[in-house]
Design a protein around this nucleic acid. Structure first.
Lengths: 308, 308
DNA sequence: AGGTATGCATAAGGAGATTTTATCCATGCC
DNA sequence: GGCATGGATAAAATCTCCTTATGCATACCT
């Protein structure tokens, strides 16, 4: 077990005083009075058992021992300072976004490059977020997720509400006679039939009694994967149109019905711990996300709107 | 002006916690509770704006940033610790004795070697003490001096009282017919006639009216030099027999009268600042001086006797 | 499986160090 | 000689920092 150091405030005072060779100046640097520095130095001298400074009139000089010690202490403090500076710089330049796969794949992946170009000094790393996510998400600066409740205690911005409607591949669509009524969907394989969105949607569509529980459950749990299966023609998936924009535009998916539902109690949130409230990198990313959403014509809440 | 560091207690807590990877153990090492460590770490994390540890159940791990920082902080603290250890060792092994020339020449010089042999780990340096002494005496660990009052605030041990009696070279003695009465001394040159000891001695010797003020004054101010002039036959000096022991034994000086005076208000003192109260090196030297005096048959006060 | 022990988080409260304020002193400088 | 500068010191205020007490999660043991 390491040796105990003398009281740290005393060491700090000594460090500053030995650099300035002045208690007054040291006090100014440390934001305290000359008296306090004097007190701390005396404390340290008493502790060590020898004088660190010889007090001449209107100036002080380091004693032999004092000079020896000062050199090393100044050095150690310089190391400490650069250590904290470095880590601060590094932290300021590294943004870890813990994102839901859906958002990461369908939204972030092809836009992130723009953020990078706008902010070349910030290195972004995307890490998965979810029930079985790497616990590394603890180190995330920002979380983007579809949760009923964002991480408690965190600052959260609602991004978009979770709309959903069935989607399928046009190729799959051709395999059936026609899809004119919601009930027609039941002729097709259903991707992730236990997703509660299905019953919600069917209910709104006028079929409150549809029971999908007997169907094999793929339990993908991520729109990104469900969308992939739908694109691959493996079935009908219930998806958020906004996140399928590209697939819809390129004709990989079609939306057979206009009817979309909105989950009132479930939204996409961007959140971050209170400590990041004033973090530049977080602010830049948050504002960038909002700007992107706005470009897409999404009804975006004020960038500063915050959900407690 | 250097960057401000985060609160030092927080850094210290982090340093220990990152070494132990345990708040509890860190607390034990630092002599505080686990709660206090936890508090300090959180403080630091808030200050930095990112987590330093990821809290798993029953153990903690350093985050990426935390690990980076820990390496450097541990390093800096190690430097600090060795700096203080080194200076303590060095201080413990260096003894600066600020001594009156008389004591240094007549007493210390030929005995010091014994102390060195008994304590090979202590390097002794003698520096002059006196009205026109090098201001370096400020760094002295011990002062030996004949003062009416030892440095105020210092711990002081009375060594011997200042006895004095006239001394002269036997060669000088032969140049006069005979010295039988104190008044005979006046036929000889007087070394340092303004030394108040002369009038004191003559008064006790029954010649209260002797006035030496008209004599040329050499103003040596140090028994060592006065003794040298006496040995050289340049006159009669008034000296402390104990410090002339060698010269008396070898016949370089003789003491014409048994009569010695004692300066009631003037003694030889060994003193040291209160901070050295428990210093090993000071204790060893002080006790050694007492032992030497005792070997000489001097009536020595208890080694722990202290004059406030 | 249940109980216990371990390790960290948190709130409230208090003890104590640390800092400030207010002087004092010495001396360099104009 | 008078003023300004720089440090020492005592008393008082402040405000960290630490402890106590408790809760919570979970690993480990029987």
């Amino acid at each position: 077990m390491p040796v105990n150091l003398p009281p740290l405030p005393a060491i700090r005072a000594f460090e500053a005083a030995s650099r300035h060779l002045s208690f007054t100046k040291a006090g100014e640097e440390l934001g305290m009075t000359q008296a306090a520095v004097s007190y701390q130095i005396k404390l340290l001298e008493d502790r060590l058992g020898f004088l660190l400074f010889t007090r001449k009139t209107r100036k002080i000089e380091l004693t032999e021992h004092g000079a020896l010690l000062a050199a090393k202490v100044i050095d150690s403090f310089a190391s400490l300072r650069t250590a904290f500076e470095d880590i601060s710089k590094r932290s300021a330049g590294h943004l870890v976004v813990s994102s839901n796969t859906t958002f990461a794949v369908n939204w972030l992946s092809n836009r992130l490059v723009h953020f990078q170009m706008q902010n070349p000094d910030i290195a972004v790393r995307i890490v998965p977020y979810g029930p079985n996510a790497d616990p590394e998400f603890n180190e995330a600066d920002i979380v983007v997720s579809a949760c009923k409740a964002p991480p408690k205690g965190w600052y959260s911005h609602e991004l978009v509400q979770a709309d959903f409607t069935p989607m399928l591949s046009p190729i799959l669509l051709e395999t059936v006679d026609e899809i004119t009524a919601p009930a027609d969907l039941l002729k097709l394989p259903i991707v992730d039939p236990q997703d509660t969105w299905w019953t919600d949607w069917f209910t709104v569509a006028g079929l409150p009694d549809v029971d999908l529980s007997h169907l094999p459950n793929s339990r993908m749990g991520s729109q990104a994967l469900e969308a992939n299966r739908a694109i691959a023609g493996q079935g009908v998936a219930i998806l958020t149109p906004y996140f399928c924009k590209t697939a819809l535009e390129t004709g990989q998916l079609v939306q057979p019905f206009e009817l979309t539902c909105r989950a009132e109690d479930e939204s996409w949130y961007l959140s971050y711990p209170p400590t990041h409230r004033n973090s530049r990198k977080v602010r830049l990313f948050r504002d960038w996300v909002h700007a992107e959403l706005q470009r897409d014509g999404m009804p975006v809440l004020s960038p500063t709107a915050m959900v407690a």
